[in-house]
Nucleic acid binder design. Structure first.
Lengths: 226, 226
DNA sequence: TAACATTAGTAGCGACTCGTTACTAATTCT
DNA sequence: AGAATTAGTAACGAGTCGCTACTAATGTTA
């Protein structure tokens, strides 16, 4: 059984949601519950911040323990303090979203596993609420923040990038339109590498390299409000 | 001097940012500091949640005290727990955003005042950080949430609505384009009332009444990412 | 080895969208 | 009465978007 230094009845918990693309779905990292009464239950990695440690620092520390490579980014997304139960009995739980690039980071210790987000096992109710809120935030940030690129390795094919967008948006995109919009945005630049993966024509690898564009701000979009 | 029940050294504070349109600018409600050492300093309304009270309930209670009418909505937007000082010495501060409709709610007690957000007086550093983060969140949510309508009374003119959008976006919008986009989104419906305010032709009043539209989702927008 | 399957990538057409100019409408001010 | 001011709309041209249809380069199969 793992150690859990400040687990008992602390006022505050920092809970980390680590997400990565897994096949055609988003996967969340859960660890086996340290509570001996609840065997075979899963929960988000969490801890209480140590003295003098910021919330962000605590989240980074918590994320570092179950996987080898650090996530590309960690952002605070939600705080919950209601009657729903937290495994540590914390009054307030602050949820952090950690995005893990696809591919490399898969190695995981025996106490952790990736679960597709639409097939999560039973979890402590407050953590379950954190996950729902976190994923909702992720989806709304898609269009204003380079989230998709942080779920990919440094070099990726445009098909991979499109797959991540489809996974986050929950719908298929049209290849030609996707690429045209991407070109117009000056967000990626080609490398001179090509990757042949199984069948079909090899794909060129790209990297995330946003160029500053002239501020041609559009009017307003009401599309997403209703 | 006001009472402040749980002010001393509580672990957690709930800080409320109440925003309303004030002329052509966004204004934030601040209250005079209860700390006798710091005369003529201003701070966000805040308190620690009472036992058995959720964060949301606490925020609603805190918002109710300085103004007469309740804000239209309150949302949790950010949590900060770092070395920046909070007036109550709280380790963690959770920031809530409360949107107050323009017009009616102006009456305020003598201990509170509205400040334009670009002319805020000196404030406790952590609260200042909460405000900056909260306004950033507000701006990014503009396009996915009917924020502008919650800063207006139930009936409003289209010019008022456009003014709120301009205020939140920080740039002028074109009248015809704004209205065409609004019509296409089926977000408002006209009432049979008209308002003549000073000079010029009277304007028709509208109300927020979003219609469910067929899910004609667009492709992807990369515009706002760089 | 030739034909097929599969994946990558592009060209271009028609429909729709957006920014803008230019107008009409209804009221107050002088 | 006429100027000023604010509300609201029509319509043109440029640009964007979704889609079909194509070419390109590889592995698979007969």
């Amino acid at each position: 059984m793992r150690e859990r230094p400040s687990a008992r009845r602390s006022a505050l918990s920092v809970d980390v949601m680590m997400l990565t693309p897994h096949g055609r779905r988003l996967a969340l990292l859960l660890t086996r519950s340290a509570d001996s009464r609840a065997k075979e239950r899963w929960e988000l990695p969490w801890e209480s911040p140590r003295a003098g440690e910021t919330l962000e620092d605590a989240a980074a520390r918590i994320a570092r323990s179950p996987i080898e490579h650090a996530p590309s980014t960690i952002d605070q997304v939600v705080a919950i303090g209601d009657s729903r139960r937290h495994p540590g009995g914390a009054e307030i739980s602050v949820g952090f979203l950690a995005l893990v690039p696809a591919g490399a980071p898969s190695p995981v210790g025996g106490n952790s596993a990736w679960f597709p987000i639409d097939e999560l096992p039973p979890m402590p109710p407050r953590q379950r609420a954190l996950v729902d809120a976190g994923i909702a935030v992720l989806r709304t940030r898609l269009e204003t923040s380079p989230i998709a690129f942080r779920l990919l390795p440094a070099a990726f094919t445009l098909s991979q990038l499109q797959e991540v967008y489809e996974l986050l948006l929950g719908r298929r995109l049209h290849k030609a339109s996707f690429r045209r919009a991407l070109q117009a945005a000056f967000l990626v630049e080609p490398t001179d590498e090509w990757r042949s993966e199984g069948r079909g024509r090899p794909a060129q690898l790209f990297r995330f390299a946003p160029k500053k564009r002239r501020g041609a701000r559009r009017g307003v979009r009401f599309d997403a409000i209703g």
